[in-house]
């Protein structure tokens, strides 16, 4: 069999995913709550809500799609270039990609069509809070 290095096999239908709770699920059976729970019990990782604000063809890398996100409470602007078949997990909706047809061909994973306004699950490092400064009496 020819390996397909560009297609990470964790998105293949039937791939076994371990949640932070230790539970094993197939990638196609994952629910929003699985990501939320996993982030809660895993130290150091935090779930962010990342809203898709723009989708366009990548200028730098032909064949890829530039996805523009507003990330987290800060609404930080982040752009990533991905192949059109790359699936994202949309809150309350599930797997979605820019090309559900290609995702189905390459991974066998059923996807919705990713659109502007969709809110995707993303992760970031939990903010390491500085020790509270003691309030010195003046």
């Amino acid at each position: 069999p020819v390996p397909a290095p560009c297609n990470p096999s964790h998105f293949m239908k039937g791939a076994i995913i371990q949640l932070a709770t230790g539970e094993l699920k197939r990638v196609e059976d994952l629910q929003t709550q699985d990501f939320v729970r996993s982030a809660e019990v895993s130290g150091g990782l935090k779930i962010d809500s990342s809203m898709v604000v723009d989708i366009r063809a990548s200028q730098q890398r032909p064949g890829l799609v530039s996805l523009h996100f507003n990330v987290g409470e800060q609404q930080s602007k982040v752009t990533i270039d991905v192949p059109p078949e790359h699936p994202f997990f949309v809150f309350g909706q599930g797997w979605s990609s820019c090309s559900p047809e290609r995702t189905a061909q390459l991974y066998g994973l059923a996807c919705h069509h990713l659109q502007v306004g969709d809110v995707c699950v993303s992760i970031t490092l939990q903010q390491q809070l500085q020790p509270q400064q003691q309030k010195q009496p003046q």
């Binding site: 096999s9 995913i17 990342s50 996100f69 995707c120 993303s122 992760i123």
Partner: peptide, 19 residues
């Protein structure tokens, strides 16, 4: 059978610091 960690499925979107 390979087992993948849940966090490999979702993008790591670190806000870029602009200062």
């Amino acid at each position: 059978v390979p087992v993948f960690p849940w966090h490999s499925l979702v993008p790591f979107l670190a806000p870029t610091q602009s200062d």
